[in-house]
Design a binder for these strands. Sequence first.
DNA 1: CGTATTATATATCAAACAGATATATCAAAA
DNA 2: TTTTGATATATCTGTTTGATATATAATACG
Lengths: 178, 178
Amino acid sequence: MAREKKIHIVILGLLNHEDLTGYDIKKRIDEAIRFFWNGSFGNIYPALKELEEDKLVKSSSATEGAREKITYHITAKGKKALDAWLGKTQASNELRYETLLKIFFAGASDRETAYRNIEVFEEEVRQDLNILKMHRRALEPIKEEEDHLYYYLTASFGVDTYEAYLKWCEKAKKMLKG
Amino acid sequence: MAREKKIHIVILGLLNHEDLTGYDIKKRIDEAIRFFWNGSFGNIYPALKELEEDKLVKSSSATEGAREKITYHITAKGKKALDAWLGKTQASNELRYETLLKIFFAGASDRETAYRNIEVFEEEVRQDLNILKMHRRALEPIKEEEDHLYYYLTASFGVDTYEAYLKWCEKAKKMLKG
DNA sequence: CGTATTATATATCAAACAGATATATCAAAA
DNA sequence: TTTTGATATATCTGTTTGATATATAATACG
């Protein structure tokens, strides 16, 4: 690939499964991928144009009524690029936990503030955990199919780590009380 | 604060504890904070200038030999800004796991590739887990002191989640073999 | 039946951040 | 002695985030 952004890979990965519009891609990311990677319109739409320039995807626009819709399709070259990226074992894993930052610097404030920050985090985690568990439950009976196995694994990753977060929240709250 | 970047908060939080140079700040981040937040020279040095413009920090430069060194000190206004930020409960928590991305899209490739990607991830996690455990062990006897409690909590968070990662790696590898 | 809200759809811009690179000094090891 | 690694500041490019703009289609509500 001429230019290689991570969003390019996300898009190729999704298109490898089905044809999608930019808007669809955003939806797929928000549904399943956001737990470990994000995407915004601000990088999806430009990335689609770049991918098309590099012939990794092909677009076909259709007009339903007065409304334009550009659907993208992965090319053989695109599949090759995706495969090459999957084969490279190096991977950067970054976290940005504003909550942890707040806990880390809580010494500047008071225990009640730290406690409250954990509670807010806990609530968010609890909600996302419910979603992840739903995903996993839905995938459970079909996880033997190669197509769904990997989705199942990532959903499991989410469930496992989010459950660890909740356990930590419990412990941390106890320590702050005592 | 006029401008409010996350790196501003990281810097204020660190300076609230001790006076530091830009280089020191990078070191502190790499030692303890990188597990949940990152910082680079590319945003630390400009941020220090911005913070000084806004009177949240104060600098004093000293020349040891032919070498210049700019040490930063938090002001009362800076402490207030940090406290205000800590008081705001909303927090954005984002992950960027290239490894998970590779697993998610592994269907485009083969099981061996997915397996290898997990092994690489596992090895990295194992190394970081050792560091985090060292931190936690060192903090264990002094965690009752308010100053160290929060550092202990974040180290514990790291240990708990990294252990969850390793458990997931085991499970995932088994599923890929079977 | 009209109207208000939500979903669909594409697109751009500013600000924040990552990663690489440049430059130079100092300390320590080989 | 020379070369490696640590200290120290700084900038630049490219990527990503988050907000915003625009407009149409579908749906819910009174």
